[in-house]
Nucleic acid binder design. Sequence first.
DNA 1: TAGATTGTTAATCGATTAACAATC
DNA 2: TAGATTGTTAATCGATTAACAATC
Lengths: 209, 209
Amino acid sequence: MEDKGISRAVITRLPRYYRYLGDLKHEGVERISSQELSRIMHVTASQIRQDFNNFGGFGQQGYGYNTNYLHQEIGKILGLDKDHYMILIGAGNLGQAIIKYMHFKKRGFYFKGAFDIDPSLHGTMVDTVMIYPMDQIAPFVKEHGIDMAVLTVPKAAAKETAELLYDTGIKAIWNFAHVDLETPPHIEVENVHLYDSIMKLSYNLHKNG
Amino acid sequence: MEDKGISRAVITRLPRYYRYLGDLKHEGVERISSQELSRIMHVTASQIRQDFNNFGGFGQQGYGYNTNYLHQEIGKILGLDKDHYMILIGAGNLGQAIIKYMHFKKRGFYFKGAFDIDPSLHGTMVDTVMIYPMDQIAPFVKEHGIDMAVLTVPKAAAKETAELLYDTGIKAIWNFAHVDLETPPHIEVENVHLYDSIMKLSYNLHKNG
DNA sequence: TAGATTGTTAATCGATTAACAATC
DNA sequence: TAGATTGTTAATCGATTAACAATC
């Protein structure tokens, strides 16, 4: 699970496997072959087997894969068996929606607090999450053992806001601001660039005339 | 621009180029070489030149690229020189946030209406956008020349809701529900799978122990 | 045991990088 | 003209697919 040699392409596919296996499990499907999964997911059976074998085989010759076991193991690889304590930085429209959208919905991801520069928001709640002033980020992170920050501040503020996090002990930033952060090596970043996404859709919409 | 042979990897990089060139333009940088851009964006100069040459050269030997021109041309490739009329389907937390987040912010993308099953929302506004009942989707799309739908309904409703769009003339779906839609060939889909994204971050957070 | 299907090696394909001639 | 830098071809690298022996 700690192998550093797993390619980015494989990692990107893992959550999708996890999602499909969760659905199959939900439908009561107990076993599945790479061929059946291939048909459902529209990827080759070969790729499925190659992907899983990056982490050591989860299947059994002549049988296939046990849906429950495979789902669970991929969950472990993704770190979903562990709890994550999160803060939100930038409690605007998008930030508040993310709190409401994620909260209680996905086990293991917990918002412990939100931060904003707007003093009128301080002390108010989004769902069950309190909004604090920005200068309390560092002590809050330490006190609550926060490992992830969700960054939903305007583009112009993103760089300096992210820098507030670098020495706090935060390990990961989920970045919704449309800049690419240049983070220190001990911090992982995952970008959700919504404008990039809609531009890609726009391209595809027009590509055939 | 209509060339179908452009690889997915190249398309995915275009919005990022567009973003960086917009920033450079904003900073008053008039020309840039692939080498300078390479340094700023952390990709190889070779890749930059290859990518641009998929669409016919935009540069000049010995000079480099004109920032404004290149920005504009990539914008055209992405279809950003055209207006897009959008509807939102599913006016919950995330949907409302997207309307507020996108509206007026990015030229060319206009929300004309929103739709929800909840009758108590019908007739109310999100920003400047009215919420309508679901059964009005088809006539609305035709009347307003809508080309894109943003799908922010719960996972369980996504499939059947998407199907309401297939024969309306809609050309593209920006899908925030965490299912992979099986759309007919005349409809493009771009997925924003937030859970997939946070799972990837979780993986990277744990991969070094 | 025979059939099925994995795990894994080999072959192919595509994308990235390097190199350099063309040319501004 | 000389220097710089693109456009483009060739080489390399990595990811995907095919094939099949191992084995349940």
